[in-house]
Design a binder for these strands. Sequence first.
DNA 1: TACTATCTTGGAACAATTCTATTATAGAAT
DNA 2: ATTCTATAATAGAATTGTTCCAAGATAGTA
Lengths: 143, 143
Amino acid sequence: MEKIISKYKGKFKLTPQRIAILKFLDNNTGHPTAEDIYNEIRKKYPTVSFATVYNTIQALKDRGELSEVTIDPQRKHFDPNLRPHHHIICTVCNRIGDIFTDFSAVLHLPEEILAEYTLTGNHIDFYGVCSECRTGKESMFQQ
Amino acid sequence: MEKIISKYKGKFKLTPQRIAILKFLDNNTGHPTAEDIYNEIRKKYPTVSFATVYNTIQALKDRGELSEVTIDPQRKHFDPNLRPHHHIICTVCNRIGDIFTDFSAVLHLPEEILAEYTLTGNHIDFYGVCSECRTGKESMFQQ
DNA sequence: TACTATCTTGGAACAATTCTATTATAGAAT
DNA sequence: ATTCTATAATAGAATTGTTCCAAGATAGTA
Ligand SMILES: [Mn+2]
Ligand SMILES: [Mn+2]
Ligand SMILES: [Zn+2]
Ligand SMILES: [Zn+2]
C-alpha cells in the first residue's frame, strides 16, 4: 500500500477514491469489471461515481498500467498484471484464471499466414471447468 | 444457394430477408458484425430491420450454425465457419483472418492448472500487421 | 493559506443489443 | 387456389455498458 502511494506520487493526483481503486487492483488476479471495481469502492466511498471508476481505469490504461481483457462478450474486464500471459475461463462460473506460460515458440503458423502477416503477438483463451464447479458433479465432466 | 434453401427447408421459415442473410453468411470469412449484415441485406431489402438481423443471428446460433467471435471490444462479430479454428487480427485495419491449425497437442499446461481445471478447448488470437497495411510502410514493421 | 490544474460527481448522451406489440407472411392444411 | 396459423418482420421503446459534460470540489504546489 505504501508502495502504491509512492509509486504514483507526483505522477497523478492521489485522491481517496483513486487510492481505493489502486488498492483494489493491486495484485488483483480476479479480472474485475468496471462494476466490480465500483461495487468495491462504494463500500468505503458510497458516493463514488461510475465516471470516476471509468476515468481512473482510462488514466491507468493511458499510463500503461492496466490492460483490458476481451473475453466476456457482455463487458470489459481489467487486469493489472501486464506481464504477457494467457487466460483460462471456466465455462460454468466464467471465472478467468491466469496462465504464465509462453507458447510462442511452439505456435508455428502456416507459411501462407507468415507471408501475409508480420506477427506481433498472441493470446490464448483456454476453456475448462474449474474444480469448484466440478464439486459434487464430477461425473458430468469425466470422459 | 440451392443448397442453402434445401438445407433449411422445413426447419425454419425461409423468408426473403433470411435467405439474403444466409446467402451473405454462406462461406463468409469476413467475420461480419450485425451492422455489416444489416448494411448488406439493406441493399436488397431497404426496409429490413436490425431486429430481423439479430433474430436471425440468434436463430442460427440456437441451431448451432453460427458462432460469436469475441475479439473486438466494441462489437460482436459472427462466423459461419464452425470448424474449430484460430484467428489473426491485423492491429492496423482490425481485419480478422482464420487459422486452421490445431495447436492442442503442443499447448502443455502447467500441472497446477491441469489439477484445477478440466480442459475443454482453446482459442488463439494472433496479432500482426497484414500485407495490405504494410504496403508503403515496410520499414515501420521490420525488426 | 491561497491558487489552480486536475479530479469527482450526477446526469445526459451514446452505441450495441434486446425486447415488445403489431402487422405480415411462409408453408401447411384444406 | 384459398384459408389458416404459427412464425417472422417491423418500428420503435427499453436496456445495458460505456463515454461525455458541466459544475463544484480538492490535491498538491507555491
Ligand atoms: Mn490475467
Ligand atoms: Mn473465423
Ligand atoms: Zn467455475
Ligand atoms: Zn491490416
